[in-house]
Write a protein that binds this DNA or RNA. Sequence first.
DNA 1: GTCTATATTTGGATAGAC
DNA 2: GTCTATCCAAATATAGAC
Lengths: 190, 190
Amino acid sequence: MATARVESRRAATRATIIETAWEIARTQGWGRVGVREIAAHLEMAPSSLYGYFAGNDAIHDAMFIAGNHELSVRFESLPTDLDRRSMLIETARHFVAFCDEDPARFQLLFQHAVPGWEPSPDAYSSAVDNYEHMRSVMGRVGISDGPSLDLWTALTSGLASQQVANDHGGDRWLRLIETAVDMFLRREST
Amino acid sequence: MATARVESRRAATRATIIETAWEIARTQGWGRVGVREIAAHLEMAPSSLYGYFAGNDAIHDAMFIAGNHELSVRFESLPTDLDRRSMLIETARHFVAFCDEDPARFQLLFQHAVPGWEPSPDAYSSAVDNYEHMRSVMGRVGISDGPSLDLWTALTSGLASQQVANDHGGDRWLRLIETAVDMFLRREST
DNA sequence: GTCTATATTTGGATAGAC
DNA sequence: GTCTATCCAAATATAGAC
């Protein structure tokens, strides 16, 4: 049907807009991401974008949701039959690598570093979903008490933020993950 | 002399400008900090501020330097005769509390979250000074190898960012510091 | 020192023609 | 769907009078 073709064309254009916005965020920073700049890259009139997104905030929301979705896909790709230690190591490695491979995405998802924007409730729920998924994975290897989960999030988010901010593209904090996990696991043994 | 009085008056006005800027950052976010908004709070004309600061960036630089200076003062207030464990606990506590007591300052100093601004080389050196000081404190209690320092910065910055972002004003991560330090210290013992 | 007035830039967003 | 033409709102910064 024609409507289906039109719909898919529309989706493709939306995807192109988002991809262009990511490109700008990566190369010029979040301060430059806006309807005007995106339109310029696409050689479109800024007003044309409003046929695809309600406005600048809606574009950011779509990117936020896409970023969270990508993270959830990565986590689902992890094997589920690993032992405790390997599970934590792989989870942390995936997370830190995910953050470091795209600092712009890291800033959007985890650092609230986008001027004048915060996620809509709908977009925010995609972040909550990921947190819940992390909790269930941790629960599966026997870590479910609040303080342990909080210590784990502090540890992994600290490794990620240091890696991104001070050694992007390297492995200065990435290679500390085994040590960090062993340290974390030993904390509970008397 | 008149010049000295004039100088001190000038310094006082500069201080008032900075204090007003902090107030705006805390209550309205960094996106609203600018010469216009500051001037409005002070009931001055925006152009008058240029007699005290070269511009918006210079104001941010001054705040960045002041924030780092405040942190260094806090660290210098710590007792120096503590044992290893107490030293790490107190250092971490001071740091996390410092971050949490003013999220706006935390964002400026550690999260590069101010749209369109980054510290001048001169301002940046005040941050480097603090890092070097932290290194020397850690060295005094026998922690001086790179990986240990990196793990320590990841751990403390992770605790701080989680505390600020997810439990500002509370103690959900603050109270994990003893556990975290014990975990950190035990990591090196066989 | 401080003001008024203004230049300049940069955004988001809308109306209406085609 | 896309464009042109605007509108409107911020924001930095400067010129020049008082």
